[in-house]
């Protein structure tokens, strides 16, 4: 599936420059409309390629940065089992990042470029990971709400028109369900616990509810890329459609826990068969997106430090592989 390394290395163009762009584009759109998958060496419009590179790399960065807020609790998980589960989950997030970087690389960008973009602060990642995790209940709320919202976004991406992205998403979605269920189970335990534990669960829901709704992105009327992405079948549902679905799924789950969604305007609309919810504070979203969230600086700083401190390991691995190669070449001679 990831066959970007087939021909010459480096930043070669994805496809030969077409003599007739319009004809190519029409044929491309016809293939997309017929639900054919587009593969790395196929002709594709430059805008399609750029949109995918941006979206897939942001997705990959989000997985990698997403390891930090939960990683914060690995050393303090309440039991050995919870600790093992959390390590497995955080390791999965790293794996998801790896699948996604590989998928992005099929579009002619290198891993180093992508990592540079993240570490230099040029690339975006999901705003949700710029919020802190002050209590153990936040680990539960992240699994339940953040991974729940991620699943809602990612399931339609399994049918995305770009083959490598769609296949990576199938793999990711299979693993995501474990993440959501372990999170909900943490919330369930707390909700059935002491009054202090119930309060912890409520506080975590208060902290994560609105940021989770913002994960679906700006409202359809303000979303810059939506229409084109829909036409290219990168996106299958609008931001608002997915957000609504998430609310409809999640509110009964909160009810079951006996905790209250922090939205005074939330009510069931029997006629429409869905929940109505209050207005989202997009100024907060934009602030976090611009780098002024509670943890933006800390997250990037931590990634930079990890990358810098791992440099000697990467260099030593290359040097060792080189030495082994030379030795075996010497033996053969």
């Amino acid at each position: 599936m990831y066959t970007q390394g087939l021909d010459a290395p480096g930043d070669r163009p994805v496809a030969p420059v077409p003599a007739d762009d319009a004809a190519h584009e029409a044929r491309f759109q016809a293939r997309v409309d017929a639900e054919e998958k587009i593969e790395p060496k196929d002709w594709m419009p430059e805008g399609y390629r750029q949109t995918l590179v941006r979206q897939i790399s942001q997705h990959a960065h989000s997985e990698i940065v997403g390891m930090l807020p939960e990683g914060n609790w690995i050393t303090r998980a309440p039991t050995l089992l919870r600790k093992s589960i959390l390590i497995a989950k955080v390791q999965d997030e790293g794996g998801h990042g790896a699948y996604l970087y590989s998928a992005a690389e099929t579009l002619g960008v290198s891993r180093e470029q992508l990592i540079d973009q993240l570490l230099s602060g040029k690339a975006k990642y999901s705003t949700i990971f710029n919020y802190p995790t002050p209590t153990w209940a936040d680990v539960g709320a992240i699994g339940w709400l953040v991974d729940g919202a991620a699943i809602m976004n990612q399931i339609p991406l399994c049918r995305c028109s770009y083959g490598p992205y769609a296949r990576a998403m199938v793999r990711v979605c299979k693993e995501e369900s474990f993440h959501q269920r372990q999170g909900y189970e943490i919330m369930l335990r707390l909700a059935k616990g002491t009054p202090a534990q119930r309060q912890m669960a409520q506080d975590a829901l208060n902290r994560w509810w609105w940021p989770s709704l913002m994960m679906f992105g700006p409202s359809d009327t303000d979303s810059k890329h939506s229409a084109q992405s829909m036409q290219w079948k990168i996106k299958r549902f609008s931001n608002d459609e997915l957000r609504q679905k998430f609310v409809d799924f999640t509110v009964p789950q909160a009810d079951f826990l006996g905790i209250r969604v922090p939205d005074p305007e939330l009510r069931w609309d029997a006629e429409a068969g869905c929940y109505r919810f209050g207005a989202i504070d997009w100024s907060e979203f934009n602030e976090v997106l611009r780098g002024h969230g509670p943890c933006n600086r800390e997250r990037l700083e931590e990634r930079r430090q990890a990358h810098a401190e791992g440099a000697w390991v990467r260099e030593a691995a290359v040097a060792y592989a080189e030495k082994v190669r030379e030795r075996s070449a010497g033996k053969a001679a």
Binding site: G5, A98, Y99, S102, E105, R171, A321, V324
Partner: peptide, 13 residues
């Protein structure tokens, strides 16, 4: 069956 790709210094890694 092909499952994906990754970067490594050598075959063992």
């Amino acid at each position: 069956k092909h499952v994906g790709s990754l970067h490594a210094v050598d075959a063992r890694m």
